[in-house]
Design a protein around this nucleic acid. Structure first.
Ligand code: MN
Ligand code: MN
Ligand code: ZN
Ligand code: ZN
Lengths: 124, 124
DNA sequence: TTATTAATGCGATTGAGTTGCAATAATGAG
DNA sequence: CTCATTATTGCAACTCAATCGCATTAATAA
């Protein structure tokens, strides 16, 4: 299934890029200006994740956030890095802090999801 | 509001203790034998978390898991440790691996939620 | 220009977790 | 032990995030 270019896809990615942070579907829908269906936004986001354009963060508030993968082009971002969720402004940002661990023998790793929560510098 | 001792509370804690792992409400309800209402289990779990008996893990599958806090009595478990979720057997275990990071200036930390996912040693 | 089929909108649905309320029962005072 | 207080429970309804089925629209390439 080859991907097609649509205004919706561009708009979603643009909003996330502009914010410079990880965003939830709700936040994207609010900031995007034009009316885009909720299900469509989720489908766009899921496709971007499949294609390695975005990465998904499962926050401890039970919601999903989506952020640009800079690890692909620039190598500035560690493949596994911490995320910070501010409980005040309800945003998540990718921290430039690598996640270090040594998994016990015979464990197979497929995903890393590390979220630190609290109050960010802007809200402190 | 002083806590009261009930069979339900004991049963829930006992199931988690026996498993030796973190458990979800569903898993607890299945393993507990007697029929206990879903809402009641959640309320018991939430109370245990408030009291520092259990700690809550928000997994990347969107569900909550609950595990015994051994950090309180024994000091063998690091206050912030990694968790491992096996996608095969749908369990979460506390890993004896400390989470190390240095938060940027002016960030206030209230919670740490680090979950590694994959296949555990028993399912590999 | 046209056929193919990916993408979208809408409504319904799932699943986890919470909440209001009435009934039940643990606890402590008398 | 008896009784009053109120924490706990069960049940049903509800919230919220995310997904799904299906008909419609529109991007792409022949
Ligand atoms: Mn990130
Ligand atoms: Mn743990
Ligand atoms: Zn903030
Ligand atoms: Zn396993």
């Amino acid at each position: 299934m080859k991907r097609r270019n649509t205004a919706t896809k561009d708009a979603v990615l643009s909003v996330i890029e502009t914010s410079g942070k990880a965003m939830s579907q709700t936040a994207i829908e609010e900031k995007i200006g034009v009316a885009i269906n909720r299900a469509t936004i989720y489908r766009v986001l899921n496709r971007y994740c499949e294609d390695g354009i975005l990465h998904r963060i499962a926050a401890d508030n039970g919601r999903q956030y989506f952020a640009i993968c800079v690890k692909c082009d620039k190598a500035e971002e560690s493949p596994h890095h911490f995320h910070f969720r501010c409980e005040k402004c309800d945003t998540i940002e990718c921290l430039p802090i690598p996640v270090n661990f040594a998994l016990p023998k015979d464990y197979q790793l497929t995903q890393v999801n590390c979220v630190l929560s609290g109050v960010c510098k802007d809200c402190a």
